[in-house]
Amino acid sequence: MLWRYIAKRLLIGVVQLFGLIIAVFFLIRLLPADPVSRLVGMNASEEAYAQAAAQLGLDQPVMTQLAQYLGLQPSVQPGLLQGSLGISWVTNEPVLSEIGAYLPVTIELITLAFIVALLVAVPVGMLGALNPGGRTDKGVFLYSLFAGSQPEFWWGLLFVYVFYYQLGVAPPPLGRLSPMTNPPDFVTGFMLIDTLIAGSLPKFLEALHHLMLPVLTLAFILSGPIIKMVRQNMLRALQSDFVLYANCIGLPKKRVARYALRAAMAPSMTLIGILYGFMLSGAVLVESVFSLGGIGQYSIRSVLAFDYPAIQGVVLIITAISLLVYLLLDLVHAAIDPRIAH
């Protein structure tokens, strides 16, 4: 039953992705942009222009381009069906391997940030709901007044100023490892994992140290909505009939609180999933401040250069990950709440 549900969701996901590929493919080509002249320059001769266009395949009819992209003509060039996202027009590297290098940076960053944010925000939101108007609540109000109203890159800069420049507890914001350190061999792209695979504990700790400030910045921003949501859901759960009834039959206070928390977490899953999907490309400002070459920066570079294969590849991969995250959280939600039927 469960496996059938997962299979069905994955199948639907593939259909969604296919629709998205087609849409993005045509929408990009509708833009009033000329990627060829962006590559060869405004003053290039007509021959050079034509040669570049032919090289990019842009002289072909649109439908032929689409067929090639999808991999329906593997004799000409490999496409999606062959597991290729195409070749970047800017770097001449395969898009897939580029994304493979950039994406883990972002995933590592936001996953850690989410874990930290949840560890802080859930208890804080709970306390706020258990004692509305109390000290926790007032603190949260002050925090949301500041955190919510200022952009994250500003907080990043501020944290760099305080923790690196003033206190000196954080490393400079210059990437994932110190510039003097030799990075470990590329295996997964996740620095924390690759350093461990390389068997170097000092490098692992250094990577963790470098992640400290960016994770802190993101977690600081993410905690706002999560606290608010947990508090809201918790308040609703505490006012529900079944919590009142749990009190009526004299269950211990702790058990009543557990009843309420579980009921509050179930609906929170959805928002966490949406936030995660959003952060995949939304973490770009923090990545820039800390010189982390993440997927957000890769997207911006591709868009500015009209690098069609790269743009298509990024959209495809980010959507696929979002869909997987949604599926995962739906499964967690269903495990918490038996009313969600597959």
Partner: peptide, 27 residues
């Protein structure tokens, strides 16, 4: 508070209207 909780459910039981809402939906 704790003595009161001990009496609720042990010495005085209650059933309410809308029983489905009074049951914990997750357990």
């Amino acid at each position: 508070e704790d003595d009161m909780r001990a009496i609720r459910g042990r010495d005085i039981g209650i059933i309410v209207q809308n029983p489905r809402a009074a049951l914990n939906p997750l357990l």
